[in-house]
Design a protein around this nucleic acid. Sequence first.
DNA 1: TTTCTCAATTGATAAATATCAAGTCAAATA
DNA 2: TATTTGACTTGATATTTATCAATTGAGAAA
Lengths: 232, 232
Amino acid sequence: MRLADLPEVRAIHLFRSMEEETFNSIFKAAYFQTFPEQVDLIEEGNPADFLYVVVEGCVELHAKANGRETTMAMVLPVGTFILAAVLNDSVYLMSARTCQKSRILMIPSQDIRAAIEKDKAFAAAIIRELANCYRAVVKEHKGLKLRSAVERLANRLLRYNDAQGGSGSLLLPFDKRTLASLLGMAPENLSRAFNTLKPYGVVVDGSTVHLTDIKALKMLAKPNSLIDDRVI
Amino acid sequence: MRLADLPEVRAIHLFRSMEEETFNSIFKAAYFQTFPEQVDLIEEGNPADFLYVVVEGCVELHAKANGRETTMAMVLPVGTFILAAVLNDSVYLMSARTCQKSRILMIPSQDIRAAIEKDKAFAAAIIRELANCYRAVVKEHKGLKLRSAVERLANRLLRYNDAQGGSGSLLLPFDKRTLASLLGMAPENLSRAFNTLKPYGVVVDGSTVHLTDIKALKMLAKPNSLIDDRVI
DNA sequence: TTTCTCAATTGATAAATATCAAGTCAAATA
DNA sequence: TATTTGACTTGATATTTATCAATTGAGAAA
């Protein structure tokens, strides 16, 4: 890793509170690289050699079984992925590929584990990050089990609207195929779900969506902070 | 907590490697109680005041939204629940109720967080436990998105068979209503799924299930260690 | 034993979701 | 400009899953 990049990395919340010595020891053997889009970073089943941090861009976590494949999550800056596999010294449960040109930090697993042993502040930061990841999956799982496809889409739109300033106009952060997979439905059904939401003021224009009747949409979506809130 | 119970608690993997001093500080204000079945221990949305450890019995984690309710997980001895909420000092995402008479350890959240600050060995044990919980939910989520209801049941039966010695006869660990909810299907569909599996050697007798043609069942189920294996 | 209760099953039907096959449209390319 | 490409949409249909209603059956209570 280049010396010039260190200050930027040091500013990331995960690495901000750790001791200087731990920081240096970790980033001796770390990589900080820019990947083009559609690069497969890791494959499920392989041993967890690195912890990954998305600094810029976007990474899709996906998984397959039988012949099917599904998008499990999208990792945006600044987010980690595959943390649990690293901590457990186990294999990856998900594959990862860039879906944009992305700057990715890669830290050898053994260095992460050693740093946790040494550095309480870093251990605390890792615990917070891992707990957040856990809660995010639980929320996803609740959404999938407790909501229909249309409800999942409606709540997702409300969430993106909030995250983008709540103006009533939002940009879908990835293509519809990916969004459909993330929401657990076929691409065709995403189109139909958008149509179902038309009477609730959802106007789609390419990857822009206008919400013209948020009150009605919320009535249908029944948002629930224990599913939709990314902070709690 | 009674003095006589301390050795038993000390033997639990989570508390085995921690320092004596930390151990004593934690269990000063802890509760170790036996609850009858069907007791609501916590409710989703409430602040996480305690970390719970199931020492004997069984606890159902469930969640609701809209009018629906679903079983999220069953916690067997010795397992924790609601760890992430405790670590994040946040609210519970799931509710919990005993489904048998159960001995439960309850440790005040702030004591857990203080102990992590102080005690590296305990922090390491907590990280391992949390990472395992995370991976368990990811596997559940993969199963739900990538498999049909019949496949989920088939794999679950194979898993219980393995866990119970692989004799080809297994006891369903909870009633079928709960199993159905856990597997993400209606109770009626669980019955039908069992019927669908009959040609694959699945013979149901109350809560006992015999697997008379494991090879055929595996052919249908296509078990996948990255979903079904609880150890990896 | 008989009755009662409740989980589980079965049947009929409805709703949700997936699949297959065209078709549309806009951006990229020639 | 014409063409190609690929994502998205739409329609028709099949499959999966849920719901409602009725029935069964085993264990608990009388």
